[in-house]
Design a protein around this nucleic acid. Sequence first.
DNA 1: CTGAAAGCGCTTACAG
DNA 2: CTGAAAGCGCTTACAG
Lengths: 340, 340
Amino acid sequence: MSKKNVTTLKKIANELGISISTVSRSLNNHPDISEQTKTKVLNIAKKLNYVPNLFAKGFRAHKTNIIGVIVPDISHYFTATLLKGIIREAEIEGFKVIISESRNNETKQTEMLQTMMQFGVDGILLSLTRKTVEVDEIIKIREQIPLVLFDKVSKKVPCTQVVIDDEDAAFRVVEHLINLGKKRIAIIKEFENSLISELRFNGYLRALKTYKLPVDEKIILSASDISMHQGKRFTSILLSLKEKPDAIFAITDGTAIGVIKTLRNHGIKIPEEIAVAGFSNSENSIIIEPKLTTIDQPGNKIGKTAVKYLIDEINNENEVINKTVEIKTNLVVRESTLRS
Amino acid sequence: MSKKNVTTLKKIANELGISISTVSRSLNNHPDISEQTKTKVLNIAKKLNYVPNLFAKGFRAHKTNIIGVIVPDISHYFTATLLKGIIREAEIEGFKVIISESRNNETKQTEMLQTMMQFGVDGILLSLTRKTVEVDEIIKIREQIPLVLFDKVSKKVPCTQVVIDDEDAAFRVVEHLINLGKKRIAIIKEFENSLISELRFNGYLRALKTYKLPVDEKIILSASDISMHQGKRFTSILLSLKEKPDAIFAITDGTAIGVIKTLRNHGIKIPEEIAVAGFSNSENSIIIEPKLTTIDQPGNKIGKTAVKYLIDEINNENEVINKTVEIKTNLVVRESTLRS
DNA sequence: CTGAAAGCGCTTACAG
DNA sequence: CTGAAAGCGCTTACAG
């Protein structure tokens, strides 16, 4: 079965023996139309389950009321919270959302942007793949259609960007660890092209500097992916050092959980001997024991904010906004850094 | 900035001083057009970054190549895997996906169905809210446009339905517990209107019957929501019984994790004294200690299968398919039911 | 108060 | 080999 029983203005007009124009105006409650005609039209429209074809409507107005969203991977918990915020805010504004995954593949990402254009979206919300190097294509798209970057962004693209304040958040994590009396704080981060990792690392460095603690390369570890597995591997390395750390800050929860699991296997007391902190406040952070101290990223808020700025841009004919919005995060202190 | 720099056939035609028809045919590689004209058109199209407006294309063909998806809550991990499967399969078939949340609200769900119609989707993939009682509206929509139910379904709606074999899966969990020598197996389920809960409970009953174990109402517990909290609460109740269970089957992982946490608080050995099993194979099931035995639901596969059947229906003019497809699950045995 | 006509971007049967 | 015209479902300026 394909769409065939769909009721159109024409059908209603024929049914009533009046013109399409009159039907349209009746349905839109135009003041010119007589009450009598209006009710006649409304009744039959209801009976035939008429739904206006927004598609055709938007066609005239060059508007689809659809926003395109491209994310690296939909099945990350944090991404789901972002999408939730996006979908809800968009809905309030009368927009629908088309979602695509770039699967952390830059070519795919460019393809997706093209496809979004083809589907005539009114604007695009983009969270970049991990290693986006070539931004020319994105800039080109941005010249044709409103575009807002969120979460994973790049300064190389001139457009509105909605991000969390990573540097500040990381600073507060490390400051918290220092306040606990920790003096030798390891960090597990990502290398290459990860803006987020870089910013968090900057926060780490700034905290050490502010509190006059030395920076030791031996306890600064970088991986190409930041998984639970890498958390385990790096913890083993850290434990084999002559001077072990007294705290480990993993720039993502998954890695931090790997850290905790390995520390527990070695019978190390958390947080007395080694405290652990993560980043994201994923669901897992309260399942693991001890519960993980981490940064809560308000995904909902980021999503909503990004939608707001995008719709602003869609509605403003000419004005091109071009600012970076930083959403504040919350430090959530739990057992992994709290002495019992 | 609104969409203004978008290149159309007209623009290309004007640029070249030829007709729109010729441009269209060149771009579609029509055999009638001379190679010379084709290359001229292709070059300028590329230069102006022309992307065909699928919107306008579909308008003629009564096709949008958009599938509408409605789920209760996007931020559940399992939902994310479903969506992933849906998006990928749809993409392969050249469809985009519009996603909405019904937020477990039946009125909202009906609204969403209407909105999907308005956006002219070619078909709808629907996972029902927990308490869908009123299916008339859904049936009405189904008469106008292809519709497939997936995951959370209802037998009251005559259409193709893609689900996991819940009854069989639950049977295998309980059978596994019985094979371990467990004889007094508690179940934590949902009451009211939850088809999934009912099916899993049936599997539980069938396993007890098959292995000739008695059914004891005292260890059959029902809640209105199945959360970690309820897992904790019910475990306390079970532990206060004179005859304690020797295994607890929670029909969802979150609840099972609550069970494990409470058992550990009481110093009860898992699985020796009480074994625990869940359902879903969520990420958390390998974070908790001991790791949780559970049922892996292939969300990807369910999503893909649902898309396949929907697209079949979209492409088949008249034929109305109407079958229930059951996707097999896997029992994943972990520490919570394995003696060390 | 109501209708005929144009137009949004595209494809395609019909002419030439 | 190329073009003019119709039509998808809708809205709206223009007539009457």
